[in-house]
């Protein structure tokens, strides 16, 4: 029971990170391998706000999210839009964006290592005990989970209840048809990419409240997010949430019962099962 709860609490942050990536890939069609670096940046900014200005990381989200939004919007316009424009087909864009975001990944990672050093960081925030079903958990984990749920709910409302959200979903299904019904596909893609970055950075800020982080751990989280996205089905919001839950619980189980050093092995086992059984994702429909 304790493992399940720990897994679920962990999965809240995973879900945010994966939602960010699935929006970027599903709508803006960019497989953003630098996603983990946005997450790490979120960790560091939350840390810096807390350490230097004593700003509560939850309030810090209101600073971090707009910053990440602006930063990712800029990246899309400067670095990625030219690739979208020059790509002759989807396959070409896929290869180009993978290589370009690898570049961004190393560049951002290198800059953060120069800025913050390579060592691990952490800080004390709400690190008191909190009881659920008679077992104790870190209060910071519970608060981070609740914040993640609130953010995901707001995202859901945005996607399914607002005009712009509907446009985003339309572009995800078919950019060409969306264009025909007067949706500015280029703008929606840029906004969605930025939104995805903001979600990921929020995930990072929440993660930093209970997790020890360093400047070069981004790629591990990119991996996890990618696997969640594929498990859930590309561009599928519900799928990403369910897949994040599965991954969070599976990792906690493996770390508790086998070895904490084998978490990647656990994610990969899930990944292989998905690839062999349902490459279209949990809720995805098989394309013909």
């Amino acid at each position: 029971m304790q493992i399940i709860v720990t897994g679920i609490l962990l999965s809240g942050t995973y879900a945010l990170i994966a939602l960010g990536l699935t929006l970027q890939y599903g709508v803006a069609r960019i497989m953003n391998l630098a996603n983990g670096e946005t997450l790490v940046a979120g960790c560091f900014i939350a840390f810096w706000l807390f350490a230097s200005f004593a700003i509560n990381p939850i309030l810090g989200l209101f600073i971090i999210a707009p910053l990440a939004f602006a930063f990712n919007w800029g990246i899309y316009q400067v670095a990625l839009k030219p690739l979208v424009d020059r790509a002759k087909n989807r396959g070409q864009l896929e290869v180009d964006s993978i290589l370009a975001t690898f570049g961004l990944m190393f560049l951002l990672q290198g800059l953060m290592i120069s800025g913050f050093g390579g060592e691990y960081h952490s800080y004390q925030f709400l690190s008191e005990r909190f009881e659920i079903f008679g077992s104790a958990y870190g209060l910071n984990r519970v608060v981070a989970f609740i914040a993640a749920v609130v953010i995901a709910a707001v995202l859901y409302y945005f996607l399914y209840r607002t005009r712009l959200g509907t446009a985003v979903r339309a572009v995800a299904v078919d950019p060409n048809s969306a264009n025909l019904v007067a949706i500015d596909v280029a703008k929606v893609a840029a906004v969605t990419f930025a939104l995805g970055g903001a979600l990921t950075a929020c995930g990072g800020a929440l993660l930093s409240t209970f997790y020890t982080f360093n400047a070069s751990m981004g790629v591990t989280f990119t991996m996890k997010a990618l696997i969640i996205v594929i498990m859930g089905g590309v561009g599928d919001v519900r799928g990403a949430v369910v897949a994040a839950l599965i991954l969070g619980i599976a990792e906690t189980l493996v770390a508790t019962y086998i070895d904490p050093g084998l978490t990647i092995a656990a994610t990969y086992t899930l990944f292989i099962i998905i690839l062999l059984v349902r490459p279209q994702g949990i809720f995805g429909r098989r394309t013909t």
């Binding site: 290589l99 961004l104 190393f106 560049l107």
Partner: peptide, 10 residues
């Protein structure tokens, strides 16, 4: 090193 690799990719 990471910065150089990043620039090389880009």
């Amino acid at each position: 090193m990471p910065i150089v690799m990043g620039i090389a990719f880009l």
